[in-house]
């Protein structure tokens, strides 16, 4: 849901990205209209449009005049690549920082990651 930490349009863009990455929104599937996003999240339609347009600019979505907005072919792969690039900064580094604070050695940490694999049942 919407929080106060960042501009809402970024949060809308991320929400759509997540759905594409998770496969809820398949490639070539139609995306809800900006007005539907606005009504659902109770946000300003202009803000919703800004989030959607950002993805259009990036080539993740494309517009078809008079029909609506669709997920571009190859969008999922592109998003996955981008997320992989950010994965280290976003997750690995804070993990390592916290581990060091707690006195967890890199070896132990690696072991923990491996064991968590069996808990979550493999890659999502």
């Amino acid at each position: 849901m919407i929080d106060d930490s960042r501009p809402i349009f970024l949060q809308i863009a991320e929400e759509i990205e997540n759905e594409i990455v998770e496969g809820t929104l398949a490639e070539e599937a139609q995306v809800p209209s900006t007005n539907e996003f606005a009504a659902f999240h109770r946000i300003n339609p202009a803000t919703a449009a800004k989030g959607v347009n950002r993805l259009v600019d990036e080539g993740i979505l494309y517009k078809q005049r008079g029909i609506g907005m669709f997920v571009a072919t190859g969008a999922r792969a592109a998003l996955l690549q981008r997320r992989r690039d950010r994965f280290f900064d976003q997750y690995v580094r804070p993990l390592a920082v916290e581990a060091r604070k707690l006195g967890i050695s890199p070896h132990e940490l690696a072991e923990m990651v491996r064991s968590s694999e069996s808990v979550t049942g493999g890659t999502p």
Binding site: R42, I43, N44
Partner: peptide
């Protein structure tokens, strides 16, 4: 809700 819908 009505405001957002109608404004859109």
């Amino acid at each position: 809700d009505r405001l957002v819908e109608d404004y859109a």
